[in-house]
Amino acid sequence: MNSLYYQKRLSRNIGDKFFTSLSVICALIAILPLIFLVTYILYKGGSQITPELFTLEPNPPGDDLDAGGINPALIGTLIITSIASIIAIPIGVGGGIYLAEYSKGGAFSKFIRFGVNVLAGVPSIIAGVFIYALIVSTKILFGSMYSGLAGGMALSILMLPTVIKTTDEGLKLVPNELRYASLGVGASMYTTILKVTLPSAFRSIATGVVLGIARAAGETAPLIFTALFSYYYITGFGDLFYEMGSLAVLIYNFALEPYDAQNKLAWAASFILVLSILSVNIFSRILAAFNEKPKRV
């Protein structure tokens, strides 16, 4: 019998059923714990949130049942991430401009692009080790050792490849005709880049850079022996040259404390960190989806 009807018992169909179920199981095993993880972090962390959390200093473990707040770590994360951005964004955007606009696919740009990918793969703790050797142990920054500044530098090394890559790729998406249009009316190269190509690529570059910043904000390994940690309020500019706390390092330190109060602080800090990183990610995804392509007739 050679019927065209679907036959359940055909080995081909049994095999197909089997593998389909297998891939569904894979997806479930992959997804369910992840869903559980996110919900748990948001639930457990969210339930620790109080107004004082944002204004108080953390208390040193053991002294007290009350752990205090995470104000210095929150401000510290903002400062350290800003320092990293201030260093990495100009270098990265400038470098990306060179790769996309000036280098004509020569050996130099191939080498730099390769370097960017390699640097992106360097373990983040190595960036910390490098800054430790270069800045912290040499006390080169006006004699200070561990400092927020050094932490920012370590983070900037991790941000740099992301920024260069998004700039390079964003600019490469700008159609060449647009460059010709500008150069054709007699614009200089730098005017063309600043007034025409860079603005056209602005949205994609900005999205990539913001995602890079969000990622850097959660990095811990490069900070644990560059910025170290601090329990005290950040009061002025001079504090840049001293140990500085951050949400990430606070979570690390307090997760390993045997005291419940500190553990709770770690959960609260996780909540804030994860919530902000996720919202930045979701927001930029939505933006990107709305502006898939520049409008061309």
Partner: peptide
């Protein structure tokens, strides 16, 4: 204007070589 053009290009060139410098620096220092 010509000078700005040249300076702009060379700045970008220097900035892009930072990647190589940092990478090399990391390897050498470690």
């Amino acid at each position: 204007e010509k000078n700005i053009d040249i300076i702009f290009k060379n700045t970008a060139l220097v900035l892009s070589s930072f990647v190589a410098i940092i990478l090399l620096g990391i390897i050498l220092v470690v």
